[in-house]
Simulated assay, not measured.
Amino acid sequence: MNRKRIAVLTSGGDCSGMNATVRAVVRAGLAEGVEVVGILKGYRGLIDGHYEILGTRSVSNMLQRGGTFLQSARCRQMMDEAGQHLAAENLRGLGVDGLVVIGGDGSLRGALALQHLGIRVIGIPASIDNDIPFTDMSLGVDTALNNIIHAVDCLKDTASSHDRTFVVETMGRNCGYLAVMASIASGAEYALIPEVPYAIDDICKNLRRRFEEGRSNSIIMVAEGAGKAQEIADSIKDSIGFETRVMILGHYQRGGSPSAFDRTLAARFGVAAVDALLANDGGKMVGLSYASIKLTNLEQVIHAGRRPIDAVVLKLAATLGI
């Protein structure tokens, strides 16, 4: 009897928890007597035929590491049918019975394309923007939030020492989840996000009023899709003369050792993905729903579009004066 074989790849932007998820896939597979193939550099490696057999030593000491040891890369070939067919044929050539894809929206679209070509695929949502539907939290979000909060806590020390306003830019081209949640958790004065219109003149008036009340420093969080941090800082300085500084957190948010939440979420996602494949399931994404793991059809995930910020979160921010 031939030994079953599954493959796993990480694709798109990296995030903390990817390594922990690959570890969970490998250990869950081996526990069931399944051989696990690691595809290197995402879909590009799948098309180019770059892979390695993963064992317990391959994932040893990976739980606490950020990023992805399998690496990731952009792959335009997976956007056309020829590339998708080549990827599917390569998987068949490897004798793979199923594939686990860890990544964001584009990665899940690639997973769905492979499913349509007869490859059983389970997707795992990994996006620090937390904009993937049918999961309350995506992999890496909690760690990114903790990274932002640590940076803002440090900034508040120097802001209060020099009566400064800091404009802090977070990731979030189309989704302001990180900015608004970090603002709530760090006590920032404003969260500027793509989902909610704002007027810089009103912000300046409120900052001046705060100054007159004796509050001479402030933190303004801005999601990258809501405006350019430097332009916002310049507008504040030109309008009310405050000493204003900018911090663009950039890729700092993606890295670092995953939080306890992301490590346990990774374990749950990875094991659930392997269980689904061994049950001959496919074409689905694992997600977190009210503390339980739930499978949702990839077609449904892709067609649902981006996950909106919960109205309860926006109301909470407004109530707190953010």
Rank of each mutant, 00 (worst) to 15 (best):
V59N: 01
G95R: 14
V37T: 12
T68L: 03
F69N: 04
D80A: 10
G67S: 01
Q71M: 14
A20I: 02
V34M: 13
Y51T: 14
A24Y: 03
V37P: 03
V26L: 07
G66M: 03
D97E: 15
S60Q: 11
T21K: 05
A73K: 11
V34F: 07
K41A: 15
A31G: 13
A20W: 03
A31Y: 14
G42N: 05
N19W: 00
T21R: 00
V37I: 15
G93R: 09
H50V: 12
M78H: 13
C75Q: 01
H85V: 15
G38H: 03
I53Y: 12
G95F: 11
D97G: 13
Y43C: 13
S72D: 02
H50P: 08
R23N: 07
R92K: 13
A73M: 06
A28P: 05
L94I: 15
A28K: 09
G45K: 01
T56L: 08
E89C: 08
A87E: 02
L70A: 05
G45V: 04
A28T: 06
A31W: 10
M79P: 11
M79D: 12
L30E: 10
Q71H: 14
G42H: 03
L46D: 00
Y51H: 09
V25E: 06
V36F: 06
I53D: 11
Q64R: 08
M79I: 15
R74Y: 09
H50Q: 14
R23W: 00
G83N: 07
H50N: 10
V26E: 00
Q84D: 12
A20R: 01
A31L: 11
G55E: 07
A24P: 04
A82G: 11
N19R: 03
D97T: 13
N90H: 12
G38M: 04
L30R: 14
R76E: 12
A73P: 02
M78Q: 06
V36A: 00
L54D: 05
V34L: 09
M62E: 15
V37F: 05
R74P: 08
N19M: 06
L94T: 09
A87K: 01
A82H: 10
L46G: 04
E89N: 11
A24K: 00
E81C: 08
N90F: 02
R44K: 12
E89R: 09
R44Y: 11
T68G: 01
G95N: 14
T21E: 01
G49T: 07
G95W: 08
L63H: 07
S72W: 05
E35L: 12
G93S: 15
F69W: 05
N90K: 09
E81W: 13
L63E: 04
A20C: 09
R57K: 10
L63T: 07
K41M: 14
I39R: 02
V36G: 05
L46P: 01
D48C: 05
D48K: 08
V26W: 01
V25L: 12
Y51S: 04
R27K: 14
R74A: 11
G42Y: 03
L54M: 08
T68N: 02
T68I: 06
G83V: 09
T21V: 12
G42E: 00
R57A: 15
G67P: 08
R76M: 11
R23D: 07
V22E: 03
I39Q: 04
V25Y: 05
